[in-house]
Design a protein around this nucleic acid. Structure first.
Length: 203
DNA sequence: CGTTGGATTGGCT
DNA sequence: GCCAATCCAACGC
């Protein structure tokens, strides 16, 4: 698989429910300060948008969600459960609070570096879950707001998008409201999808 | 200012 | 399957 070029700004300037499934099969790349290159093929995402009670942007702009309301193509990182970071790609128009949560990926390059951060060698456990993925890539508070289109530390390559038939849509994982929206997207049968179980499946 | 619970994970029963 | 870990944003007073 040829990873191809970087995804352009226009890719992200669309509704979260368009971008989320289109991110499957794309390749997330990180250039670490020491020169190590990490990459992984995205296999699971979730869409969050305006008027969505499960979205952090639902109650308007706050210091935490400011990046979500900014221009598309940037990274939105949040801290949760007192110990985990999760990463999102900001989408939609500037001023609109929308993003796509990156939930799982298949490690491609830099597995030893990922294993060191994750504390395990097992490939399935490196990036299969939103907090695991962020930890494997060394994404923390400092990466919040990073530009994926022009930045030199983190970006997304075209990779190979999935055919619609290869994409499964289910309810989102871990949300208590907005459960009725089937906005979790995953690659059908992919072993690197997270173990998180949605409240309701619409496969 | 005090309270509440979270877009999770991993270890233990 | 259950639950603790561990911080802090958001909200209510």
């Amino acid at each position: 698989m040829k990873p191809g070029r970087r995804l352009p700004r226009a890719f992200f300037a669309r509704p979260s429910t368009d971008v989320a499934p289109d991110l499957l099969g794309r390749v997330l790349v990180r250039a670490l300060p020491d020169g190590t290159r990490l990459s992984a093929r995205i296999v699971e995402t979730e869409a969050y948008g305006e008027g969505d009670p499960a979205s952090h942007s639902y109650r308007g702009r706050t210091p935490r969600t400011e990046v979500m309301f900014g221009p598309p193509g940037r990274l939105y990182v949040y801290f949760t459960y007192g110990m985990h970071f999760c990463m999102n790609v900001v989408v939609g128009r500037d001023g609109e609070g929308a993003a796509v949560l990156l939930r799982a990926a298949e490690p491609l390059e830099g597995l030893p570096a990922m294993a060191e951060r994750r504390g395990t060698d097992r490939a399935r456990l490196l990036c299969s879950g939103p907090a695991r993925l962020a930890q494997a890539f060394g994404i923390e508070r400092a990466a919040n707001g990073a530009d994926l289109v022009r930045g030199r530390d983190l970006w997304l390559l075209e990779g190979a998008p999935l055919r619609p038939e290869a994409i499964v849509r289910t309810a989102r994982v871990g949300v208590r409201v907005g459960v009725e929206r089937p906005w979790r997207y995953l690659v059908r049968g992919d072993p690197f999808v997270s173990p998180g179980r949605p409240a309701r499946v619409t496969d």
